[in-house]
Design a protein around this nucleic acid. Sequence first.
DNA 1: CTGAAAGCGCTTACAG
DNA 2: CTGAAAGCGCTTACAG
Lengths: 360, 360
Amino acid sequence: MGSTAKERGVQAEESRGARTTIVDVAVAAGVSRQTVSNALNRPHKVAPDTLERVLREVERLRFTPHASAQQLRRQRASAFGFEVNPSGHRRLGHILDEFLVELTVSAPAHASHLLAFAPDPDDVIAGYRQTLASGLVDGFVLADTRHADPRPQWLIEHGVPFVSFGRVWDRPELTRWVDVDGHAGVLGAVRHLAASGYEQIGWLGWPSGSPVGDDRRRGWADGLAELGVTGEAPTAESVQDLDEATGAAERLLDRLGTDAAIVCASDLLALGALRAVRNHGLEPGRDVGVVGFDDTDVAAAMQLTSVHQPVAEAARTAWDLLVDPESTSAPVLLEPTLTVRASSIRETSDADSSAVLDPP
Amino acid sequence: MGSTAKERGVQAEESRGARTTIVDVAVAAGVSRQTVSNALNRPHKVAPDTLERVLREVERLRFTPHASAQQLRRQRASAFGFEVNPSGHRRLGHILDEFLVELTVSAPAHASHLLAFAPDPDDVIAGYRQTLASGLVDGFVLADTRHADPRPQWLIEHGVPFVSFGRVWDRPELTRWVDVDGHAGVLGAVRHLAASGYEQIGWLGWPSGSPVGDDRRRGWADGLAELGVTGEAPTAESVQDLDEATGAAERLLDRLGTDAAIVCASDLLALGALRAVRNHGLEPGRDVGVVGFDDTDVAAAMQLTSVHQPVAEAARTAWDLLVDPESTSAPVLLEPTLTVRASSIRETSDADSSAVLDPP
DNA sequence: CTGAAAGCGCTTACAG
DNA sequence: CTGAAAGCGCTTACAG
């Protein structure tokens, strides 16, 4: 094999099978590799004509810096970890799947990327520690925060940057988070139902104790207070099971009487409400209003009015809080919108047109 | 600031705020850093007692190699890209979200990790090229393959490793893929319905032309042939819209007569079928059998029998095909299972117990 | 404004 | 079997 010529390494940068490096660009532009780096990272430090020449070659050779070399030198991964978990008993909605996608979409705008990782359920913190220690990420995006969540505590103690989608319930003042205002979303739904002519408005929610559920329920209660309703308004509780939700909704309907509507803490509960309405021989929308929460694909399929979370905006905000810590230090609470469909429209005219309505 | 002492860098490795490196381990174990590297990567080349001493220090100091340093030196990212797309008009089911999670769960077993990326929809290939050029990934996991998909072509041309979840329809012989046998899944559903006593079995599917849909439909046709049904069996077509699916299912029911069942190409179509059954004043399961496809959370909520894809197994197989290319070179077709629920049970006895039934 | 030097943390031939 | 040398591709002070 007469490979010595090859080994001299004097081939044109185009013909090599290997990757294009900063040196290839430097040679092509007739400058040192430091100048190429400066042109890319600190353009103001480079003479205008040199800059232009370098950038032209960068373009022509389609040079893309090698990420690991940058990471190693900068001691920064420009990446953040996002915990995922196998579904098993997944909730309806997959809001978190959508959030992951939107985080990924917004990542390049912040010169970052997203690393999915699945920690061992028996030692979640170990998964975070390991991922961080590998240098693959600079910090984390948390989701699915809950009471007594060990993660914020650990991250704060170790000075690890993070942002949370969902309030950090135990110490909301301490940390950066972005959340959707469930209270406002449900309040808007109550106002919409009242304006649509439903007289009685009941609540179908989860057993109290879940911070998210309790927050949404307060939105309903405040909505009733705003309408001047006093005394015992009918409510019902159910876990995430359609049959149980249906039963709870039927009992709720009995207590609500005519001209009633039901606001639900989730689309799955609303599915139970829809079924209960039909079991009573009634028509959702025309006879009984039903509103869900999360605006899942199922809500769209079932013509169910539902509170819509601005997930893409939440993802963009999460990046802002994480990558530009100066920009906003306060927590961010986003306003949901109400996607109105046939299940909350009394007139039959345009019952199958769906529209997005901002809460007043 | 009397920081000169600090600059001498003679502090114990424990007390430094900085990361633990291979040198810290070497010093602690009294060997050179090369030996630590060998102990970790080529243990057979290290004397047993040295090995033990080194590994003990690795453990004690919780040393985790810096990923970018490894990647740079090895010229390998040990990571693979997975394309995600903002939902918009998402299908019911989110099988791909589940696949992403399962890929992430299986990644550590292959000493790899998964990078999510969202290419520009107007130039998907550019997104793949860019992600590859950055050195962040060694290859890709494809999903959602379709006819005239430009990605396999481009990847093959550039010698980029990849595996696909879903057949590479245009050149199945050329590439590595893992898929779920939709034909077998629907065939199993037909057999189950026949065994349950439904006499007429219709098909509710998508307009022909989609390779996935056509494959599933053939499973239904072959099932009928197996049962000795000849002539024109009733079918109906619908796109992914619940109202349209309901209408199509109602017409299908009229043609099927009594003792009928409907096999559907998706859970959403099955939702339409369920609604059509109720619109006819009938009860799903008891009067008309309905089977969906994908076993989504909605199927579980609605007590809908559905064909279940072994997504976790598909993810593990994808890693095998990608990371250990020697292990299996042939495409892999996995058998789905049938999750039986009330919608395909005629007796009312245990109508709400769900069971998983392997196809015969 | 430009380039020579140093170094991020690791692995891989290669001497000893 | 162990360690000294080289180098992956890049960036950042720092001379000139």
